[in-house]
Write a protein that binds this DNA or RNA. Sequence first.
DNA 1: TATGAATGAGTCTTCATTCAT
DNA 2: TATGAATGAAGACTCATTCAT
Lengths: 211, 211, 211, 211
Amino acid sequence: MQSEPKPRWERRKDARPQELLAAALDLFVDRGYAATRLEDVARRAGVSKGTLYLYFENKEELFKAVVRENIVDVIGKAESDVAAAPEASCRELLRVMLLKWWSEVASTRAAGLAKLIMAEAGNFPEIARFYNDEVIERGNALVASILRRGAANGEFVALDPDIMTRVLTAPVIMLMLWSHSFFPCDTQGFDPEAFMDAFLGLVERGLRPPP
Amino acid sequence: MQSEPKPRWERRKDARPQELLAAALDLFVDRGYAATRLEDVARRAGVSKGTLYLYFENKEELFKAVVRENIVDVIGKAESDVAAAPEASCRELLRVMLLKWWSEVASTRAAGLAKLIMAEAGNFPEIARFYNDEVIERGNALVASILRRGAANGEFVALDPDIMTRVLTAPVIMLMLWSHSFFPCDTQGFDPEAFMDAFLGLVERGLRPPP
Amino acid sequence: MQSEPKPRWERRKDARPQELLAAALDLFVDRGYAATRLEDVARRAGVSKGTLYLYFENKEELFKAVVRENIVDVIGKAESDVAAAPEASCRELLRVMLLKWWSEVASTRAAGLAKLIMAEAGNFPEIARFYNDEVIERGNALVASILRRGAANGEFVALDPDIMTRVLTAPVIMLMLWSHSFFPCDTQGFDPEAFMDAFLGLVERGLRPPP
Amino acid sequence: MQSEPKPRWERRKDARPQELLAAALDLFVDRGYAATRLEDVARRAGVSKGTLYLYFENKEELFKAVVRENIVDVIGKAESDVAAAPEASCRELLRVMLLKWWSEVASTRAAGLAKLIMAEAGNFPEIARFYNDEVIERGNALVASILRRGAANGEFVALDPDIMTRVLTAPVIMLMLWSHSFFPCDTQGFDPEAFMDAFLGLVERGLRPPP
DNA sequence: TATGAATGAGTCTTCATTCAT
DNA sequence: TATGAATGAAGACTCATTCAT
C-alpha cells in the first residue's frame, strides 16, 4: 500500500542549477536577453517556471549566473594562475591565457553572450554594469598586468599596456561575434581556428622586443 | 496680448517620412528592433503614435524602410555605377565602392543596423529574409561581379570570387559592429579610418596579379 | 494662364449626400455598424474622409440618415397615404402597405439594416432609441391604427390590435433577416416572393370576419 | 479583530474553463463577437485578463470553444443517438432531435449565437468557416440522414431531403434569432413554446405519407 | 522543494474625429 | 466646399513575477 520511496538518484536536486544554467545559456545565446522567456528556460531544463525562481531570484540574476558560470569563472582561474606563477614567462602566460580563453569561452556556446551584450547592454544598465565590472574590467586588468610585468622584465617591448590590451582582445571578441552572427562569412571560407593560430603568431612576434 | 494658440499639430507631409525614418534609425540602432517602441519613434519625430501608421504599415515595414533608405539605396546606386561603367578599371571600381560603403553606410549611424540584424534576425524571420535578399545577396553579388570582371580582364588574380567576396566584406562588416559595440575598444585606441585605410591598401596589393 | 473654370456639372455637389448615403448603406449592411469604417464609406462615395463630415456630423448621424432615407421616409409616406384616405378600404390599405414595405424596404438592400439593428442595437443605445422611436413605434402605430379602423367599421374581426400588429409584422421582419443571413436557407429552396404571397393570402383570410 | 487577508486570487483550475466559457457566452450573445472585450469576459469570470489566456489561445479559440461547448456537443450527442438506434422510428427520432435542439440550444442563452453568426460571420471568415463546418453542415447532414432513412422505410413521404432539411431547420433558427432580437415581438404576445409545439405538429403531419 | 495558476503592466495596431490648408 | 494629416483612446495579446498548495 505504501508508495515506493523515490530512489534518491531519480531527482538530482543538486544538478538543477546546472541544468537551468545550461538551458538558459542556450536560449540567451539563441534569442537574446529580452526575447528569452523564463518559461522556456524552465521547460528546457525539465522543470516548472516556479522552480526556476527557487534557484535564481529573477531573470537578471539568472543571466548573471550564466555569465559567472561561463565567463567570470574562467577569468578567475586565469587570475589565480597568473598570481600563482610570479616568475613564469610572460610570453608563455599570455599565450596560454589567450588559448584558454579561446578553448573555454570563445570557441564554446558561451561566445554568443558577446553578441547579446553588444546588442542589449544598452537596454539593461544593470547587466551592462555587471558585465563591464566582472568581465571586461577584470579581463583587461589581467592582460594589462601581464603586459606590464613583461615590459618590466624585458620580455615585451614597452607599449602602452592599456592600448595593447584592447588590440589583443579585440580580435578575439570579434571572433566571438563572428561565430554567432548570421552572416554567411562565418559559415563559408572562414576558419576560426586558423584565425586564432594566425593571431597568436602575430602576438608572439609583435610583442617580442627587437634583439 | 493674446498668445498665439499653438496648433495641436503641424502639417508637414513631405518631411514626415524622413523625420520618422531618422527617428526610427536612431532608436533601432540604440535599442534594437524588439525593444524599440513605436510610440517612442513617433515622439522623437514629434508626432503621435497614430501618425506613424499613416506612413508605415507596421513596425516591420518601418524597419524595412529604414534599411532601404540607409543601405539598400546605397547598394542600388553602386549597382548603377558599376553597370554604367563597363570599361572602368575594376581596381578603381572596387576601391570606390568600398570607400562609398564606408562613407555612406559603415561610418554613419546606419552601421548600427548590422549589430541589430546580427542579434535579432533569428527572432524575426521575415526581417532576416528581407535583409539577406536586399542587402547581403545584392551586395555580395555586386562585389563578386567586379571580381569576376577583373579576373577576366587580367586586372585581378584569379581567385574564387565568392570566397573573396566574403574576405573583402567581412572586415567592413566587423567595423560596423565594432563601431556600435558597447566595448571600450571602439572608443579608445581604435581608429576606424586608419583601419579602413590599411584595409584598402591590403585589397589593392592583395588582388594585384604578380607582374 | 488661367485655369479652366470647372464645368458646373463636373462636381455634382447636390448628389454628394445621396452618394454617401448609398455607400454607407452598402457598408453598414455588409459589415455592421461598428465594423464599418467611415474612411471606407467616403472612399466608396469617391470623396475624402473629411468631406463626409461636412454632410454628417458623425457616424451615428450618418447611420440615422441612412435609416431615414431608406426606412423612415417609407413609413412617412405610408402615414400620409393612410391619413389622406380616411374612407378607403382598410383591407386594401393594409395590403398595399405591406406590399409597399416589401417592395421599397424588405426586398431591397435596406433589409440588411434589420440584421444590423438586431445584432448591434444593444451596443449603441442611442441608435436603439432612434430606431425604436422612428421605425418600430411609428410602424406599429400605423398598422395598429388601420386594424382599429377596420375593426370599427366591421372590415376586420375584433382582435387585440397591438398583438395583431406583432403577428403581421414579425414575418416580414424575419424575411428581412432571412434575406441577409449567411444561412443557406436563403439561397436554396427558399423564395421570398412566394413567401410574401402566401403571407398576404393568410392576412387576407385571417382577418376577414366570418360571413 | 484581524480580517482575513483576502488572497489576491484563488486557485480554481478545474472550474475555470467552465466559468470562462459561461462568461464568454453571456458577453458574446449580448454584445456580439467584435464588441466583446476579453478583459470583460475575464472580469465576469472573476479572473484577470492574463488568466483567460491560460485556458484559451486567443479570442477566436475562445469563441470556438463556446460554440463547441454549447452547440457542437449537442449535435455530437444527437449523431451518436441516431447512430445507436438504427431500427428506431424515424418520426420519433426527428421529434426527439428537434425537441432536444430546442431544449438544449434554442431555448437557452446559446440561441444568441445564431444572431452573432448571422451578423458577424462575414467579418470573420475563419469563424464563418468553423461554424459552417461544425454546426450547419453537421446539423443538416444529420437531419437529412434521418429523412432519407425515413423515406426509405416508408415512414416519410419521399421529398428532396436537402430541401426539406432547410424547411425543417429554418423555423427553429428563426426562433433562435427571434428570442434574442431587440424587437418587441419576442417580448410581447409571442410564446416560443407554443410556436415550437405548433411547428412540431406541422412536421408530424406534413411528413406523414397519405394513408 | 516543486508546481503552475494567477496577475497586470506594457506594446502594437485601429479608427472616429478634428482642423489647418 | 474639399482635403487628408494628425490625434489619442481603446483593445488583443505577452510574459516576468508571485504565491497557495
